[in-house]
Amino acid sequence: MSLKNDLDNLKQKGLAQIQEVDSTKVLNDIRVSLLGKKGPITNVLRGMKDLSAEERPKVGAFANEVRDTLTEAIEAKKDELQAQVLNKKLQEETIDVTLPGRPVSVGTSHVLSQVMDNIEELFIGMGYQVVDGPEVEEDHYNFEMMNMPKDHPARDMQDTFYITQNVLMRTHTSPVQARTLEKHDFSKGPLKMISPGRVYRRDTDDATHSHQFHQIEGLVVDKHITMADLKGTLEVLARHFFGEDREIRLRPSYFPFTEPSVEVDVSCFNCNGEGCAVCKHTGWIEVLGAGMVHPNVIKNAGVDPEVYGGFAFGLGPDRFAMLKYGIDDIRQFYLNDIRFLHQFKVED
């Protein structure tokens, strides 16, 4: 059994040697010296011819086992040494991750665009069309179709920039609705639209007035549209824009193009209705005007008001933005101070 003892000694000695190695080169030398053709194991195996036929396979099997054990130990050691080398290299590569990154310049969308995109996307999701129309309008569409014939006192509510007697800068985006309603084919379904865009009024620019501002008006016309539908739709809008917890309330008002007409208040998002400076201590903030489309508006567009009816609403993205972000001067939107604009980085 001396061969077996030799092998066992070889194994113990070899494992001890491998354990102590600290470089891949030395490890390779050990591999060659232990497992190579001139190494001790080969020697042992050569000596097997002197063994009995009975012992030979047992010793052979043991010798293979010893070789495998040593090979494994060498491989494991090799991995360990390589990992050490890599770790050292990585350590040397360490950088100051707190140094600033390479700047990427991305532009911002104007805050008014953000507000309008936000609202447009909401209504697109509810199956509305977004319809654009001319900023230079005919008196006919801007006023007459909207139930404000010449000499109507309500025209004074919307001081107007005229270009000729019959051509003007639109004072609201309602004329887009008039144009769309006039063309709409109800056999293809209801009319559900919003019309966003620039509008103009004869106002002197100050903190709360601008001769140019924006509007989004909405219109839904079909056979069974109710004022409850208006209320529900405005609730969706208010919660989408001002927060999930918002409530709305409607108050009677007057617009020539709707009847009934309402002003819409949203519960104050600043104080949750408790009362604060933002809501002038009422808990409510007036955000938009709305109502059921006046039968004359339906009729003026060539649609039968006995059969069709609907609701309309109009909101000011400028006002929405001012409320949401606490902007106190409407002129900020059009002066385009880059420091002002860059605040509004993320559209949400």
């Binding site: 209504f123 697109i124 999701g125 509810m126 199956g127 509305y128 069309q129 293809k188 379904g189 209801p190 559900k192 839904v220 079909d222 069974h224 549209i225 109710t226 004022m227 409850a228 539908d229 209320k231 529900g232 739709t233 609730e235 969706v236 309330r249 409607l250 108050r251 009677p252 309402v262």
Partner: peptide
């Protein structure tokens, strides 16, 4: 107006885009 129900229009649906 507080007593009015709150609903959404029930109409034939066209895609909004």
């Amino acid at each position: 107006y507080d007593n009015l129900p709150s609903t959404l229009p029930v109409v034939a649906m066209n895609p909004g885009k």
